[in-house]
Design a protein around this nucleic acid. Sequence first.
DNA 1: CGGGCCTTTGATTGGAATCAAACCAAGTGG
DNA 2: CCACTTGGTTTGATTCCAATCAAAGGCCCG
Lengths: 239, 239
Amino acid sequence: MFDTLIRKLSQAGGLTEADHKTLRQVSLRSRQVPARRDLTSEEDRPENVHLVLSGFVCRYKILPKGQRHITALMVPGDFCDLHVAILDEMDHSIGTMTSCTVVEISRATIHDLTANHPRIAHALWWATLVDEAVLREWLVCLAGREASKRMAHLFCELLLRLSVVGLVKDDSYTVPFTQIDLADMLGLTPVHVNRVVQHLRSENLIVLRRHHVQIPDKARLMTYCDFIPNYLHRRPRVK
Amino acid sequence: MFDTLIRKLSQAGGLTEADHKTLRQVSLRSRQVPARRDLTSEEDRPENVHLVLSGFVCRYKILPKGQRHITALMVPGDFCDLHVAILDEMDHSIGTMTSCTVVEISRATIHDLTANHPRIAHALWWATLVDEAVLREWLVCLAGREASKRMAHLFCELLLRLSVVGLVKDDSYTVPFTQIDLADMLGLTPVHVNRVVQHLRSENLIVLRRHHVQIPDKARLMTYCDFIPNYLHRRPRVK
DNA sequence: CGGGCCTTTGATTGGAATCAAACCAAGTGG
DNA sequence: CCACTTGGTTTGATTCCAATCAAAGGCCCG
């Protein structure tokens, strides 16, 4: 569990052995959370930051008309809500999509780390900037790509993000969300998501069945949706 | 010019008199930049972070098909690209929309501030988190609101953001961008932007003429687009 | 005063939403 | 172990918002 935290922050570069030691001493409580539960809700002032160890978590907002829009997906190794350590109030909610194991880190701990361990502070800042870069790509995707390329793009992104944490095997991974969840991520209706899925299937770009995707030819899928991975800011080794 | 920097960072709270002094000693070079110039381009590894003193700057990406999408707007008092101090490579470009005065702060300076002045580091982190919150709202807006509400929402946001820096008078401010720029922000075509503008005009929700907006009834405009300002994370005093 | 960019208007097309209903899989309880 | 329920997936028909194509005005600047 410590490894997950250290691995995550090491991606920012620049951590020393002493920093690793500091992180190992951080008191972490791991917790099991069922699917479809909120970890924190809008307007909360939560006391803990969460780090995902297993399962999928999403960040979402509810629009006035009641529809939900998912603005970010957190997979194992990701922080859910570093914001809460810095901002005064949540402007969105965070909920599990599957049953999850999460680690809670108190705001006090984050404050101590940022105040007294500049390289760790730097790494935490790095993590939020990468999140922002992903968010930016989602925005551009939503604005400028048609539905089927948007979905293909999402599957490409997940392929890379999940492979970093060892959750991809033979270009295939588990997508534990429903077509309704996909609709909420891509800004489409569930009906249209279904049609798009069928289209991608018919082109043999993805094989999606029972919460499991397999990508027959990832180069072709990436070309199809003009996927450029630079926004993920992965370290070279993960290439 | 120092005041702008200090005012910006003070919004995060927690800065001491000593921090102010530190910031005053930061070496700042202010520079005039013409309209429609890039400050930094994708794949650059720029040496300076920019802070806007006057004028409008935007963050944008170019899609494969050649269309531009603007992902963020920076107004006086905003940082353009704190990323460059932390991430290895730009994944987007930053360009002026008008003639601008910007201040350049070297990466080395930012690194020194974050390494040795924890409260300033905290404030910088805060600034990026607020940027992210705005980005998130843009995403939700794009996905879930129809064109005219999206545009109304943008005008509401600008009203608040510009009033913080004293650029609003009588619920009226300058919007120095063209309908083409608006289209690139809202994910619409220029033609449709024009029609939406006309619709908002006909409803008397905005008075837009010659790069200048006046809002006859801001409560009505906010109600119209369900504008909830919490995502801007303004300090109470600015209410 | 001419040229270029922006704005405006019109006609048409198309992608995705909406409405409606059937189908399917999985879990529940009698 | 099988009706029953529930949530998700699929299909079809229709509507509508916004894109596209095309061209005419305005405005500003050199």
